[in-house]
Each structure stands twice: as C-alpha cells, then as structure tokens.
Design a protein around this nucleic acid. Sequence first.
RNA 1: GCGCCUGUAGCUCAGGGGACAGAGCAACGGCCUUCUAAGCCGUGGGUCAGGGGUUCGAAUCCCCUCAGGCGCGCCA
Length: 650
Amino acid sequence: MEAIKQEIELVLRRLLAERYSEAPERVAVEYPPRPGMGDLASPVAFELARRLRRAPRAIAQELAAAFPALAGVARVEAGGAGYLNLYLDRGAAARGLARELSAPPPAPSGDTILVEHTNINPNKAAHIGHLRNAVLGDGLARALRFLGHRVEVQNYIDDTGVQVADVLIGWSEMRQRPLAESRAFEGRIDHHLWDLYAQVTEWYAQDPSRRDLRAAYLKKLEEGTGEVAREAAHLTRRVVRRHLETMARIDVRYDLLPWESDILAFRFWESAFDLLRERGAVKRLESGERAGCWVMALEGPAFESLKEGEKIIVRSNGTVTYVGKDIAYQLWKFGLLARDFRYEVFLQDPDGHRVWSTTRGPGVDPHPRFGGAARVYNVIDVRQAYLQAIVVEGLKALGHAGQAERSVHFSYEMVALTPKSAATLGLSLSDEERSRPYIEMSGRRGLGVKADDLLDALERQALAEVQARHPHLGAGEAAALARLISNGALRYFMIKYTRNKVLAFDFDEALAFEGETGPYLQYAVVRANSIFEKQAASGGPDEAQAARWALEADFDLPPGEAAEEHWTLLMEAARFRETVAQAVETLELSHIAKFAFGLAQRFNTFYHKYPVIKEPDARWKRARVVLTYLFRSQMRRALELMGIAVPPRM
RNA sequence: GCGCCUGUAGCUCAGGGGACAGAGCAACGGCCUUCUAAGCCGUGGGUCAGGGGUUCGAAUCCCCUCAGGCGCGCCA
C-alpha cells in the first residue's frame, strides 16, 4: 500500500512544482473516512489555497484534471470542500497488494537496537505494572525486528539496592532466622518475599531505628563477599528465575540479564567517572551543605525545580547514586565505555533460546556480542522521566550528542488499582485512598496484584469457557487452549491503551474475552483456519493453493455490491506494515492493537456475509479464498508482534 | 512553587489541524437445520471539562481557568 501512496505523492509533487512552483515539505496522501470519497485522498489543495489565494475546490479540480495517467489509478476527482479523491483500479490494485503481502518481512540486518525492559527488583513477585512494562517492551522489540532491525533485549537486575537489603533484614533480623535457611524454602519464593517485604516495612514503622540496619547490609551487598552477599546472590537469582518463569507464561524472552552487582564489580562506574571528570561534566563541591559531593550542572525548564541547579552524582561519602550507575550503564550500551562484562548462560529455554547473564565468575567464551548499540530504548514508566532526562544530559555532557539523541525513554503511565479492585483483594485502604480514582501500587505495602495471580485467574476463567464449549476435550488439551486464550487476553489488554494513560486496573475488564479483546482476534483467525481445514478435507482449494493464487495475483474481485467489502478487507489488511512503522515511530503500540481489532471486525463481517466453501461460482470462491488467506497472514503477523498465539480451536 | 500527563457516550477508551466525532462494555430488539454465536445485524445515548484566541476549517494548535494524577532526595 505504501508503494502506490509514494507514487501518488511523487506525481503530486511534480504537478505542484510544474503548475504552481510549489515544493511543500510533505504532501499528505491519506485514507478517506468513508467509501464514496475514493480509495485514497489528499488535502493538498487546502494547503495551497492560502498561498495561492484561491479557493481550494478550484485548485483540487485543476489538479484532478491535470493528474497524469498512473498505473493502478483509475480516476481522480475533486471532492468535498477541496479534497483530491483518488479512485484506484481495484482489480489491478488488489492483485498488486496480494503480491506485496505475499513477500516475507525483511531479515534483521544493520546496527543493533537495544531494548531494555522488565527490570523488576529481585526482592518480590512481579505485579501487573511489570506486565505492562514487559508487554510494551517485548512488543517494541518484536515490532523493530519485523521492520528489519537487529534487536537485543536486556533485563536489568538491580540486586544491590535497598529493597534487597530489606528482605534480607526481614529474614535474618526480624525473623531471627539464618539467611541460608531461605534456600530450603519451597514454592514461589517471590510470592513469599512479597509478604515478607510488606512485613519488614511494618516492622520498620514500629521502630524507625531499625532502618539503621540497612547501611550495614548495603555495605555487605556492595562488597560482594561474605555470607550476606553470598545468600543475597543465591536469593536474587532464584527470584529472577521466578520472574522469568512468570514472563515465559506470556511469551516474553530476554537476551541478557545485566546485574547491577556486576556493574560495580567490573568498575563501570569508575570508568564513567573518569570520563565525566576529564570532560568537566561533574565538579566537586568544596563548601556548603553538599561539600564533598560531585555534582552535574543541569539547565532548562525541566530542571528548574532542581536544588542549586545541580544533581548529586557522587555522595559526600564517596558512593555513587542511582543516576550515576545508570549513566555508566547507558555508556556501555552504546559501546562508549572501555570495559565489558564477562558472560555466562543463565538458562536455556525449551526452544533452544539462551538467556545470558553477566557474571563475576570465569564466564564463557565465545559469547554473543552484547551492547554497542546504535540506538537504545529504555522502557520505564513515566515516573522515571526526570532521571532518564538526566542520563541523557550525562551523555551530552560527555560530548555524545548523537547517542543522547538516540537514547529513547519509552515512557508509559503506571498501572494502578481502582478502589474497587483493591477491595476485591481485601487490601486495607485509608478513607482518603478510597475516595481517589485510583491507588498507586506499592511493593513496600504489599499493595498490588501479583502477575502470577492475575495469570492464574485468567487461565481459570479461560478454562471454564473452553470446557463450556468443548465438554469432551481432554484435560491437557483444554488447559493448553486456556493458556493460549488467557495469554491473548492479557497481552491485548496491556497493549490496547495508549501509553500515557494510567491503567486503572479492573478485574472485570482484564478478565473479559468478548468485544475488543485478544480472544476476539484469535477467534477471527481460528475461523479462517477452519475454512482452510474444511476445504482441504473436502478437496477444495486449500492453503497452498490460496498462497499460490495470492503470490501469482491470479484472481479477480467479484462485481457488484460485494466488490466494496472484498476490496476494503484487502485494503485494510494491506495497511499493516505502515501501521507497525507508525507504532514504532510514535512509540504507540496501541496502534497495532487497534489495527488488529479493526481488521478482525472487518473479517468477521465478511465471514458472516460471504460464505467461502459454499460459493458456487469458482471465480468468486477463489477471490474469497485469496482474501481469507491474505487476511489471515496479516492478522497472524499482527498477533505475533503482540505476542499472541493462535489456538488450534476455540 | 516549577515541570510533565490526563479530562470525549452511563462505564472503559480511540481519534491529536480536515469530510457527518468512533469502538468496546452496559441497556434494548433481532440472528444458531447455513465455513465455530468468544460471533453478526440493528436501536437509543455526546455543551469533546469551561472560557477566550489562531485558522477557509479546531475534539485536535495557543493562552487562561477548573478538576484529577505523577515527578522534582547525599532512595532505588
């Protein structure tokens, strides 16, 4: 579809230059809102009207009259108040689109694009906010790969932070149990720590002096030796394995797990600090409240509220802040740090995909090349916008303007609880909280919906639906279907909202399988599959035949009223690639979701109105087979980008 | 205080300079001897928070106001 649009734009540019000596930066070619306004349209005459001081309608008429013969374009008319409406030669255009859509997407090539997402602190279970992060990050990675980029996915593990110290303190100081005993715990350790973390917070509140324990634990963590560090390493690795299990349930995978403790061990920060000092990007304060701190000066409206216009990077006690470590990590991602990690395989998925991890151990050689990316996407919720901006300022201060430009904060709004859903969970809220539109989740308070619990609930619900429809199905098969369907529901739910809207979590909406949901999309493809299965069984044109007809553009559109609906289904399907490109450009993956839903709706209408198998006329049957095939192929691609699988039946 | 985001149908949300503002849910009414009813068709439902401006044209851009949320630490 993009090919013909570009040709039209080219023709219009030439026309504008020749007739009006105009060379606008962009000549829009868009899709008209209603049939009867052509297949494509351009509002270019409106733009010209002002500069030429003439009526847009008259200009559109001139352009229409002067529009040269162009393959695929049947006629051009002025429409509305001054639109240029283009009518395609639909038979020829449909055949062109069929060939275009039959081509496979490009193989990944070129520079690496790095996507960092998930990043769950390894001290508790993943919650629904992490699901939104992972679904968006994984969706972005898939979309980039589809567009032909080489993509590396990293899941950064902050294993040296105060939250990890808190659960260690909870175990050994609050409970008075040896840390090593945690190894004997059976079951979902992350869920257990979820509660422990909330308990420690309570315990601190009862006697705030207990918080003083943190400093000692943090020190032991950062030193990386001794019992606390050893048990912490064991515990956090176990928690991370659990997080990966949770994410595997929704088909989210990673290439590398960089550990913060390794960033410290490999002295990434020292290296970055040298660079920052050499460039004068940080300076040491000699007097005042902040004497002894190394700070970075920041200007601009975004930093207006900053104290003294400076951000502390190194504390007066010599330790580096979170932002400092992040600057070092970001430098490494771009290959701008003269250091690297050692690597080992963390685990291997059943399909052979390997998740690598940084390590202080001997490491494995050879290993894939990590980092050194040309472009970096950090998928983090909007509350981190300020810190992400500081990291970018750090790159600029070091003279890496290009990399700063290509450091993208993929920000999205948080997932929060409605007071209703909090009540469902039996969580205790203050009166003030109950009056709010939504309540922020809090790991410290244990306030939230655990990802596994939501996935469990979805699977139960999906299983009930499957059993109601297919009572004779074996338990294993029914459970497998339920998993695919519940994953479809979850993935779609997390991707359908625009990213800068708070997702106020509601159980009823999350557990829906009808209407604008993942299962609706899956169902449309299952129906298309079923047509091909039935055809193959009865000796009609099967999938392979459909693929040949599409590739060789060997079909005609039917005449009459049906023509419109056949054509629009194909036209809509053909917009997939540009939808993905637009989604990546705007970082708005909901475009892909909306596209898929609209396409499924169109197919369902088509399916209902135009039976394929029973069509007596071989020519029109062929058209329907080809359209069903092309719909399905685009829809499958769309679902794959969203990480949604197609169940064998529903 | 400064910065960012949000406000569109009863609810949850699309649309973010262009043609008559859309979808899902909910409500109501139809459609299963016809490729799977997790579906399809139809009905009702709107001061696009409010006010001013820019424009041939504003839900969309600018300014102000109101309401809600988030961020601004020698936490991560």
